[in-house]
Computed example of a mutant assay.
Amino acid sequence: MVLDTLDRRLVCALQLDGRAEPGLLARALGVSARTVTRRLARLRGTGVLRVVLLPRAVDEAVGALLLRVRVLRGQVAAVADALAARPDVPFVDLMLGGQEVSAAVVTDRAGRDRLLYRQLPGTDAVTETTVHAALHLFADAAQWQAGLLTPDEVAVLNPAPVASLPGPPVEPDALDRALLAELGADARASAAAVAQAVGAPESTVRRRLRRLAAAGLLRTHATVDPRLLGMTVDANLWLALPPARLAEAGRALAAHPQVHGVLATSGPHNLMAAVFCPDYEALYRFTTEVLGPLGADRVETAIVGRAVKRAGVRLALPGEGRRGSR
């Protein structure tokens, strides 16, 4: 499927506000609400676009595991599929070359131990596993934007921040958790649909959703193949930095528009950045012009051959319809 300019701009608008109403999206993009509704139905109906709910990033990212799994040639797809089928694995990539799978694991200690000490070693196809622990999050997938909107259009979708709720942080109760669960796989579900699903009055659901949004619990992610947005190269950059430069480098990369994730990690490389680039020449420029001044002792560039799962969403192969979910 090919996305035209309006499709791409619509995706960019949803990157800013995944639950924006068609009327607001139409006003930001300068088209009719009917056009937005029709385009959204096509993008979502074909599985090209999904808007999902993300947890508070720091709750999951810090302490998560970043795996680099070496696999026998010819077995990489099976190992990637097995990892992608796990609900505690939100990200899975096949790396270029066909012998490595990259994955993020968010689980408790018991789940971690089963995976690392029993399941992966017990798989004949796996030859080596490298594990990094995420120590600090600088930016995650929800913060990446393709950058196809003007500042005025962004302002329509990003009004003044909602004032923080007074008192202690919001602790979701049973109804809140039910609402978040309903929105998990389809963050654009209407308040009416969510109310019907959980058996609560629509007015109550709307009030609760506003409360959850103000507490930062309605973080959305517009999941789409970045190649459809003109980003043909996806790479994981592993940097080894002097400790005194780590925080500054992490903040600088988090602010860069091509970066869709930055983590401080354990291991010989202490910073990992995931980047989208239009082509290999752009990746070269990113390496020399952006990474160069950061003062890394060494950099490893690992190219993603195919994204299998992103933000909990199983991605379809070219020519496939919708498949899988969180």
Rank of each mutant, 00 (worst) to 15 (best):
R70H: 00
D93I: 00
G97E: 03
A61Y: 09
L96H: 10
G74K: 07
F91W: 08
D81A: 15
V58E: 15
P90L: 12
V71T: 12
V79L: 07
R56L: 14
M95F: 09
A85F: 10
V92E: 00
A57C: 02
A64Q: 09
R70W: 10
A80F: 04
G74S: 08
L65Q: 07
A57D: 12
G74L: 00
A57G: 14
R68K: 00
P87G: 14
L94W: 01
M95K: 03
R70D: 12
M95L: 15
V76F: 02
A57V: 11
V92Q: 02
L96W: 10
R56N: 10
D59M: 09
D93Q: 00
M95G: 01
G74H: 07
V89P: 00
F91V: 15
A85S: 12
R86H: 11
L94Q: 00
A78Y: 03
D59K: 12
V76R: 02
A85L: 07
G63V: 13
D59E: 15
R73K: 08
A85R: 07
D81I: 07
P90D: 15
P90I: 15
P90Y: 14
L96A: 14
R70S: 06
A84H: 04
V71C: 09
V69Q: 03
L94M: 04
R68D: 06
P90A: 12
D88E: 15
L65Y: 10
V58I: 15
P55R: 13
D93P: 01
G98M: 05
R56C: 06
L72A: 12
V69N: 08
L83C: 06
V89D: 08
P55I: 05
Q75T: 07
P87M: 06
D59Q: 14
Q75Y: 04
V71S: 02
V69W: 02
D93K: 05
L67F: 06
Q99Y: 07
V92L: 08
L54T: 01
A80K: 04
R86N: 05
G98Y: 00
A85G: 10
L96G: 01
A80T: 10
R68W: 01
P55F: 04
R68A: 04
V89H: 04
L72N: 05
D59S: 15
L83K: 02
V71H: 07
V92S: 03
D88Y: 13
R56D: 13
A77Y: 11
